[in-house]
Amino acid sequence: MTPTDQQLIDFVVREARLLDQQRLEDWLELFTDDGHYWMPVEWGQSDPRLTTSLMYEDKLLLKIRIDRLKGRATYSQSPKSRCHHVLQQPQVDERDEEQRHYVTWTPLHYVESRGDQQTLYAAWATHHLTLVDDALRIRLKRVDLVNCDAALGSIQLFV
């Protein structure tokens, strides 16, 4: 199968919807086994290994994060957080049919709320997608916050 641009766009939109609905197990299934979620801490950061990040998580770390959110002794989730994505139409930046490599770019606003607090973040999401058994999967989701290097408070869910 060769995904159309519209299918790539629909995939990115659905990914955000799963996060907003906190269907996090389903969301995790969108990643390849070697997939990563990366949120750099530096503007234009190129290396996640020798420069720290806000998040650079493989599937194991993402699973720990998701399981923790459900735990009864997870004090920072009592009360629970909620989140809300507003996406600009994703743009397809790269298509490599031979390598099954597709890249989209999506400006977005993200709101996270907890109790009486609500915080707005602005970001760009870059999805590096591939096909596994004819289904689109995330190899890398990179989230660049516009204020990645600011002194931030807790961000507890997924942008």
Partner: peptide
């Protein structure tokens, strides 16, 4: 540093909550 001290750290979240 990332796992323990970031504003996105699941260790840091519970410390800050306390």
């Amino acid at each position: 540093n990332r796992l323990v001290n970031a504003p996105t750290s699941i260790v840091g979240h519970d410390d800050l909550e306390i």
